[in-house]
């Protein structure tokens, strides 16, 4: 699984940085490196660009995994350069941005937009496989998620827009229900196509969503 990101337009990055002149840049060695949106190369590229725009870069770091707690260590290691900046620009997903925001006092700004959690289906091809809806229907849909694979997130079958097994909004994408139908057929479980799915519960876990592990559960992992 990778968090799929893309770089914000440079103009938007500059707009966010309008209030400051000294910037520390953070990249991420995990998803953003794979996606080539916030790895070493992209951090250095942006550093050059920002310098050309007249900003002082007090330092930069590519944190191994920006969203995990080791980020605190990297922040501590770079304390001087970070203290010298009046903004932190993070080229990681929004989880990385928010992790760093926990440790620093200065404004922490996103350099990337976070798009979705991607499952690498084959090399370099990431698909949104889960919308984290909290009520998994994969057992009825041959392991293909209609919530993410159908543009409209329908549950009870294809819309009228499907054509030749493709989706109306993009002829390069398969219609989820053609995929589901074919797979169920192979599995000899076509009766599931007739299964009525009631409306989804939009409030399985109302936002803000949190999960608090029981101390006993945590002990198992220590």
């Amino acid at each position: 699984m990778k968090t799929i990101t893309r770089q914000k337009p440079y103009e938007e990055i500059m707009q966010q940085l309008e209030f400051c002149n000294r910037v520390f840049i953070v990249g991420c060695g995990t998803c953003a490196t794979t996606l080539q949106t916030g790895g070493l190369e992209q951090v250095l590229e942006l550093k050059e660009k920002l310098q050309d725009s007249g900003l002082l870069i007090t330092g930069w770091a590519v944190i191994p995994t920006a969203c995990d707690e080791m980020t605190a260590v990297v922040a501590a290691e770079n304390e001087t350069a970070i203290q010298g900046a009046n903004a932190i620009l993070v080229m990681a997903c929004a989880l990385g941005v928010q992790r760093i925001n926990m440790y620093l006092d200065q404004p922490v700004l996103p350099g990337l937009d976070t798009l979705f959690m991607g499952l690498e289906e084959h090399s370099g091809y990431y698909m949104e496989a889960c919308a984290q809806c909290g009520q998994c229907v994969l057992g009825y849909t041959a392991g293909i998620c209609p919530v993410t694979a159908c543009h409209k997130g329908l549950l009870n079958g294809p819309c009228g827009g499907t054509n030749r097994g493709k989706c109306e909004v993009d002829q390069d994408r398969d219609c989820a229900f053609t995929l589901i139908y074919n797979r169920l057929k192979e599995q000899n479980r076509l009766e599931l196509m007739k299964y009525y799915h009631p409306p989804r519960n939009a409030q399985v876990l109302p936002r803000p969503r949190v999960k608090i592990l029981d101390p006993k559960e945590m002990e198992q992992w220590v």
């Binding site: 009870n156 079958g157 294809p158 499907t162 053609t178 139908y181 196509m193 007739k194 009525y196």
Partner: peptide, 17 residues
């Protein structure tokens, strides 16, 4: 509809509904 089968499943669900 092409393919017809998924469409017919939905049609029958609408009838049942």
């Amino acid at each position: 509809a092409d393919p017809w089968e998924p469409q017919s499943c939905k049609f029958e669900k609408k009838v049942d509904a």
